[in-house]
């Protein structure tokens, strides 16, 4: 991106701010800085994604002992970056973890977790079918996603990231979830 432009701007900014402040509210310039910055929603979701691995059981055939767990991220580059930043290089017990960018038509063979970062219900519904067939855990971030076939869906409530679970979808995917996870979930439903 135009770095020179950015530098120029940074250089000129005190002038611009001073101009605005003087124009609008003379004398309110003593501005302190606040130190603590809360984490972003995306980074907390990425951490959740990693923590979920502790509670999911795949059938043999879909995850052998010691096999790499593949997390495929669809749709949102920001989320992919965040997942990579948070999880890359970590292991889940004896399993190494690989993070992969997923495109809509990609094969899901050998993928254990699919994260759909877009709120598009068409994308979620299409992916739900395929994830179910491939016994992959589908994690989403969209209103009404459980009804579209998602297993775990992130919900933002009052500045907190929470998640909801559909055990019916989980079961149809041939997966099992540990009860420790269900007790933390915001909602657990069991669709038939």
């Amino acid at each position: 991106m135009p770095r020179a432009f950015k530098r120029l701007f940074i250089a000129l900014r005190p002038l611009a701010v001073a101009w605005l402040v003087c124009f609008l509210a003379p004398g309110c310039e003593a501005l302190a800085q606040s130190a603590s910055v809360p984490p972003t929603e995306a980074s907390v979701r990425a951490a959740f994604l990693y923590r979920f691995l502790d509670y999911v059981e795949w059938d043999r055939g879909h995850l052998e002992p010691g096999q790499t767990i593949v997390i495929a991220v669809l749709g949102n580059d920001e989320m992919l970056d965040e997942v990579q930043r948070t999880i890359a290089g970590r292991r889940s017990h004896e399993h190494p973890i690989e993070i992969r960018k997923l495109s809509a038509g990609d094969d899901l063979t050998g993928v254990q977790v699919v994260y759909v970062g877009t709120p598009s219900s068409a994308a979620i519904a299409a992916m739900a079918k395929r994830a179910m067939a491939a016994s992959a855990l589908l994690v989403t971030n969209a209103e009404n996603a459980l009804a579209l076939g998602s297993d775990i869906n992130f919900v933002e409530t009052d500045g907190h990231v929470r998640f909801e679970v559909d055990l019916g979808n989980v079961e149809r995917s041939g997966l099992r979830l540990g009860s420790g996870m269900l007790s933390v979930a915001l909602r657990v439903r069991n669709s038939s």
Binding site: V37, P38, P39, T40, E41, A42, S43, V44, A46, A47, F48, Y50, R51, F52, Y55, E78, R85, T86, I87, R90, E156, G159, H160, V161, R162, G180, M181, V184, L186
Partner: peptide
Amino acid sequence: VQVADNLADMSLEELSNLQVTTA
């Protein structure tokens, strides 16, 4: 944007209680 290395070490419960900013 804050890169939080230790988020992935938190429990599900701790993560649920975290106050966040949105993108």
